[in-house]
Design a protein around this nucleic acid. Structure first.
Lengths: 158, 158
DNA sequence: TCAAATTTGTTTCACTTGAAACTATAAGCC
DNA sequence: GGCTTATAGTTTCAAGTGAAACAAATTTGA
């Protein structure tokens, strides 16, 4: 290694940068499917997908499931309710909780979108062999685990 | 496969969702290094890194190199100039162009940050074996290529 | 039992952001 | 040359965002 005061950093090879670019591109590619025709934001799509999978969650639960802030969920819910995609009822056992329920229109929207995004996901992953896909899956998990460790470390140092 | 009207989608296993979560976590982990102590935004960091690598680029060039919009670059440049991190001179041959140049303070800031982010990148990637790292690199490239194809397709359909 | 603390969800306020309009300069074309 | 078009960068304006304050309901713990 030659002598140098500053370690080398090449932005184009910097992993966080590469990951950010890929994510933005993937997010855009999938987002184009539901922002235009279905007029859903990214967050609304997540709420829709989560409620389809787990009916009658509360806003809090959705925040947990979707990695969104409770505020973003609150706003997504408000817009979706306004547009007739879901209904809110205060829960009987604890009136702080909202029981959220997709309307038929909400469910239909979900059913319309799912094939589109799955097809696009499949197209993306088709760039990889089955083995590579499985490997990628594991790599993402390992990396995510590390970010949790870093978050822990930083929290302690605060 | 059992019969079902709607193909299955499990948000937690949905690749774009997983990628978005990982990216947010990685971006956060690295961002914490320069947002707090150095008071740089994500975009300012990219501009700083790019100018360190390629001195005297124009704003347009930086936008290209960093995957930022020209507007974001314009704003980053304005803030960084104000804070004494860089200088702008109109280019002699074409006065529309800005010749951007890091000041000593800008360079020093860069030199201070580089070891921190490189260390963090290394820590993240240490979750993977050398082979896995190389593989990941290739996978990201292949996937990125696919997103370009999708962008092309969508552009034509517009 | 009832005051303090906690939890769920909303709202406010200041800041950031993106799209489009705009300014200034240069290039193309007759 | 002079008119149109294109390009670099900035500004404006409306919409989106996050942090923190807030309201309402519930739990805790003397």
């Amino acid at each position: 290694m030659t002598h140098s005061d500053t370690p080398q950093l090449t932005l184009k090879r910097f992993f966080p940068y590469r990951l950010a670019n890929l994510q933005a591109a993937v997010s855009g590619a999938v987002g184009r499917l539901y922002t235009g025709r279905f007029n859903l934001t990214h967050q609304e799509w997540r709420v829709l997908a989560t409620l389809s999978e787990y009916p009658e969650l509360s806003a809090k639960d959705i925040a947990t499931h979707t990695n969104l802030e409770k505020m973003q969920v609150s706003r997504a819910i408000a817009r979706m309710t306004e547009r007739g995609l879901l209904l809110q009822h205060p829960a009987a056992h604890d009136r702080r909780y909202l029981r959220l329920q997709l309307t038929e229109k909400g469910l239909q929207t979900y059913r319309d979108i799912v094939p589109l995004v799955l097809e696009r996901e499949a197209y993306l992953l088709d760039a990889l062999s089955a083995e590579e896909q499985q490997l990628l899956d594991g790599l993402l998990d390992k990396l995510l685990e590390r970010t949790h460790q870093l978050a822990e470390q930083d929290k302690l140092k605060e």
